[in-house]
């Protein structure tokens, strides 16, 4: 595993990756081929139904590809890749019957790279009571707890699916600050969101996906220079209805 990791140039390698959910529907992902390097903050952008979440689920082993392959650090999704990925899904996956602190213990028990101190520090910063039961918290606060848990890991790849969609603008700033200040420079953050203007300044690169296919993979700087537009404006132009 370590040998593989050292050998591979890219952190994520997707090759002709396709996913079809059932025979009636078309491909959610269609021969997607892309590589994701280490040490970058990357925006995974595309309109609804473009295949972003399907791609994310495939990387996390939550779906199996219909054809093609995806490798994380040279490995197919499995126990080893799950140790490398810290994943924030678009929905609340916490067990509502547990307390915040019990979820901290849970993450500490299962992930060797989890920092309890970091988590407790962030909980205190956001004024979240660690003794509170998750079911007593608002949806936004639960999302914050989830993000704190995910960002308290020292992972190789952070995959954040809509991390700021459910929280208020004030908390958004803190969350974005948390994201950039809580990962090591060799790690990669893959951010999927529709709130492009909010994250634009964070991103190094972007990946545009449409109809399950790669439209563009480029650095944000290149887009700005080449098209003389902000990322948000360029996204609107590319995906105009």
């Amino acid at each position: 595993m370590t040998t593989n990791q050292n050998r591979t140039e890219y952190l994520v390698e997707a090759s002709a990756l396709s996913k079809r959910y059932d025979k009636k529907s078309g491909n959610a992902l269609n021969q997607l081929t892309l590589n994701i390097p280490r040490g970058r903050i990357i925006g995974l952008l595309g309109p609804n139904g473009s295949g972003k979440t399907t791609f994310i689920k495939l990387m996390n082993g939550l779906l199996t590809p219909t054809s093609g392959s995806v490798l994380i650090g040279g490995c197919t999704p499995g126990i080893q890749t799950k140790k490398m990925i810290s994943y924030l899904p678009e929905r609340t996956y916490l067990q509502s019957g547990l307390k915040v602190l019990e979820m901290v213990d849970f993450f500490g028990d299962f992930y060797d790279d989890f920092s309890r101190e970091k988590a407790e520090h962030m909980l205190a910063d956001l004024g979240i009571n660690p003794a509170a039961k998750l079911k007593t918290l608002s949806k936004g606060t639960r999302e914050k707890v989830q993000l704190i848990l995910v960002m308290s890991r020292n992972a190789d790849l952070y995959i954040l699916d809509e991390p700021i969609a459910g929280v208020d603008p004030a908390a958004r700033d803190y969350i974005l600050k948390t994201i950039i200040s809580n990962y090591n420079e060799n790690a990669t953050i893959l951010l999927s969101t529709h709130l492009i203007s909010d994250i634009e300044n964070l991103l190094d690169d972007v990946i545009f996906i449409k109809n399950g296919q790669l439209i563009l993979q480029s650095s944000v700087e290149e887009i700005r220079e080449k098209h003389q537009k902000s990322l948000d404006a360029y996204f609107r132009e590319v995906f105009a209805c």
């Binding site: 939550l62 799950k82 996956y93």
Partner: peptide, 9 residues
């Protein structure tokens, strides 16, 4: 909750 369980190592 499966999102958590199936992403555990």
């Amino acid at each position: 909750e499966g999102y958590l369980m199936h992403t555990l190592p």
